[in-house]
Lab assay of single mutants.
Amino acid sequence: TFEVERIVRKKIVHGNTSYLVKWKNYSSKDNTWETEDDIRTKYGDLVDDFEK
């Protein structure tokens, strides 16, 4: 199971928000862009903290 360590960046393309996710126990080269809906479902607190 993958676990988010932190959110690195945010991008908005054509009105759709995605977050660059750093995965726990993986290197930064393994970071992936994930949709806001996918990340918010399980890691809403991390998204809220990133947006502060």
Rank of each mutant, 00 (worst) to 15 (best):
T1D: 13
T1W: 13
T1A: 13
T1Y: 13
T1C: 15
T1H: 14
T1E: 13
T1R: 15
F2N: 12
F2Y: 13
F2E: 12
F2H: 15
E3S: 05
E3M: 06
V4Y: 02
V4C: 07
V4I: 13
V4F: 05
V4S: 01
E5P: 04
E5R: 00
E5A: 04
E5C: 07
E5T: 02
R6F: 14
R6E: 09
I7N: 00
I7W: 00
V8T: 03
V8S: 01
V8Y: 04
V8G: 00
V8H: 02
R9Y: 07
R9M: 14
R9V: 06
R9Q: 11
R9E: 11
R9W: 09
K10S: 07
K10D: 01
K10E: 00
K11E: 06
K11Y: 05
K11A: 10
K11H: 06
K11I: 09
I12F: 06
I12D: 05
I12L: 07
I12N: 06
I12R: 07
I12T: 11
I12H: 05
V13W: 08
V13S: 09
V13H: 11
V13K: 08
H14G: 13
H14D: 15
H14A: 13
H14K: 12
H14P: 02
H14N: 15
H14F: 10
G15K: 04
G15N: 05
G15M: 03
G15P: 02
N16D: 08
N16G: 08
N16R: 13
N16K: 15
N16T: 14
T17Q: 03
T17H: 04
T17E: 03
T17Y: 04
S18D: 02
S18A: 08
S18Y: 15
S18E: 11
S18K: 12
Y19H: 01
Y19S: 01
Y19C: 02
Y19Q: 00
L20V: 01
L20Q: 05
L20A: 00
L20E: 07
L20S: 00
L20T: 01
V21Q: 01
V21I: 11
V21D: 02
K22G: 03
K22N: 02
K22P: 00
K22A: 07
K22T: 04
K22F: 06
W23H: 03
W23E: 02
W23F: 04
W23T: 02
K24P: 04
K24A: 08
N25F: 09
N25Q: 05
Y26Q: 14
Y26M: 15
Y26C: 15
Y26R: 15
Y26D: 08
S27T: 11
S27Y: 07
S27E: 13
S27R: 06
S27L: 10
S27V: 07
S27P: 15
S27H: 10
S28A: 10
S28Q: 10
S28P: 10
S28M: 11
K29T: 10
K29I: 09
K29Y: 11
D30M: 14
N31S: 10
N31I: 08
N31L: 14
N31V: 09
T32P: 00
T32I: 02
T32E: 02
T32Y: 01
T32H: 02
W33R: 00
W33P: 00
W33Y: 01
W33V: 01
W33N: 00
E34F: 14
E34M: 15
E34P: 01
E34T: 05
T35D: 11
T35A: 13
T35M: 10
T35N: 11
T35C: 09
T35F: 09
E36V: 06
E36I: 08
E36M: 06
E36S: 08
E36R: 05
D37M: 12
D37Y: 13
D37T: 12
D37A: 14
D37P: 07
D38F: 15
D38Q: 09
D38I: 10
D38M: 13
D38L: 12
D38H: 11
I39E: 01
I39P: 11
I39C: 07
I39Q: 01
I39M: 15
I39S: 02
I39R: 00
R40D: 03
R40G: 04
R40I: 09
R40Y: 06
R40F: 05
T41P: 11
T41E: 13
T41I: 13
T41K: 14
T41N: 10
T41D: 12
K42T: 09
K42V: 11
K42F: 12
K42H: 09
K42Y: 12
K42N: 12
K42L: 14
Y43L: 04
Y43V: 06
Y43A: 11
G44S: 14
G44D: 05
G44V: 06
G44M: 10
G44A: 14
D45A: 12
D45C: 07
D45S: 11
D45G: 10
D45Q: 12
L46G: 03
L46I: 10
L46N: 02
L46P: 02
L46M: 12
L46Q: 04
L46T: 04
V47R: 04
V47I: 13
V47W: 08
V47P: 02
V47L: 13
V47E: 01
V47N: 01
D48S: 10
D48Q: 07
D48T: 08
D48G: 05
D48W: 06
D48N: 09
D49K: 13
D49E: 14
D49M: 12
D49G: 06
F50P: 02
F50W: 11
F50H: 02
E51G: 03
E51K: 05
E51A: 04
E51L: 07
E51M: 05
E51I: 06
E51W: 04
K52S: 11
K52I: 09
K52Y: 07
K52C: 08
